[in-house]
Simulated scan of single mutants.
Amino acid sequence: MFHEFDVDESYLYNEAFISFVLKHEKKLRSFYRRSLLRGKEILPTIQGLLVEDGVSDLFIYLSMVESGFSTDAISPKKAVGLWQFMPTTAKDYNLTVCHSYDERCDTVSATSAAINYLNKLHKQFGKWYLSAIAYNCGEGCVSRAIKRAGTDELSVLIDGNLKYLPRETRQYMKKILLLAMIGENDTLDFDNETDEKLENRLIQVDVLSGTPLKEIARLLKMKEEKLLSLNKSLKEEIIPQERPTYKITIPIDKVYAFYLRYPLPDKKRVFKSHMISHTVALGETVESIAKLYDVDAEEIITSNHLKNDFLVLDSLLVIPVNKKIFDKISK
């Protein structure tokens, strides 16, 4: 497990780390359980985004340390969201923060930004544990610590006696590793796609500006409070007016109801009466999938709000089909 952070397994037997585990394990186990309960609906989405972009899903534990999986967490320093972005960093990674909405509170947008930032840090420092450390204390702080220490060895950088890094950062990396140990030993098994986990997955869809959330909740036959809890980036109970359309998050098991009942912002409205899901396999294209279900490729692009015909392996598509095809597949 440690190797996914580029940490040598021998660190498990480091005296300082053992001392940290003995002192903090009970408290962090309790924190872990509370965080897991709070984030149970968004965890599969975060994990999927991490893996899709080449970052270990164990970086989920970095988000856990940052926010306890509270999408609208606010720190004393005014960092916000799952990944605790400061306003300036949010701007650098294209997260919109304005009077009516804050994308730092949006699961998909904030996670995508965090992935971009972590990948940038990994490219700069070459090791994932250095990326995590820099995420906490900044790139300059890590660069100076490595220069002073004459090494980028983890045990040296976070040594409590040498103090190359701030105490908060030394504890930060140990917390991530300990929570990862707790999580993996408790067999979270994020890779095991059970029906329950599929039901808890989230997806983003485009809605028109000015649309009341309660109207969307009514169309989806779900409680307004539930929809609001999934879209804490919205500061009011209405879709912002600043741009023509806005992405909101809904449970993936509501996506069929959404596309059947909500008028798509795109003029190329799909009028098929049924929707089916399709997971993209190796070698498949929009054209080949369209041929498989006897639909127009443009209908697939429109229904899934694709910018082009590029597909990501194992991603989920919604395919609009007629009743005949739907009945055939359902049998």
Rank of each mutant, 00 (worst) to 15 (best):
E4T: 14
F5C: 07
D8A: 13
F17R: 09
F20A: 04
V21P: 04
L22V: 06
K23R: 14
K26E: 13
R33G: 10
L37M: 14
P44Y: 04
D53I: 07
S56H: 07
F69I: 04
D72L: 06
K78T: 13
V80K: 08
T88G: 10
T88E: 15
T89V: 13
A90R: 06
V97M: 11
C98V: 04
D106Q: 12
S109T: 07
S112V: 12
A114D: 01
A114C: 03
L121Y: 06
F125Q: 09
A132C: 12
G140M: 06
S143V: 02
R144H: 07
K147M: 11
K147A: 14
A149G: 02
S155T: 09
V156Y: 04
D159M: 00
G160K: 13
G160F: 11
G160E: 13
Q171E: 12
M173L: 15
K174A: 10
L177K: 01
L178N: 05
L178E: 02
L188M: 14
N192R: 14
K197A: 11
N200V: 03
V205M: 07
V205R: 06
V207S: 00
L208K: 15
K221L: 09
K223G: 13
S233C: 12
I238N: 01
E242R: 14
T245K: 11
T249N: 08
K254A: 09
F258K: 09
Y259F: 11
L260G: 00
I276S: 05
L282N: 15
V286R: 04
A290L: 05
K291P: 01
D294F: 07
E298S: 10
T302Q: 09
H305D: 11
H305Q: 10
D309T: 05
F310C: 12
L311A: 07
P320Y: 02
V321I: 01
D327Q: 14
S330L: 11
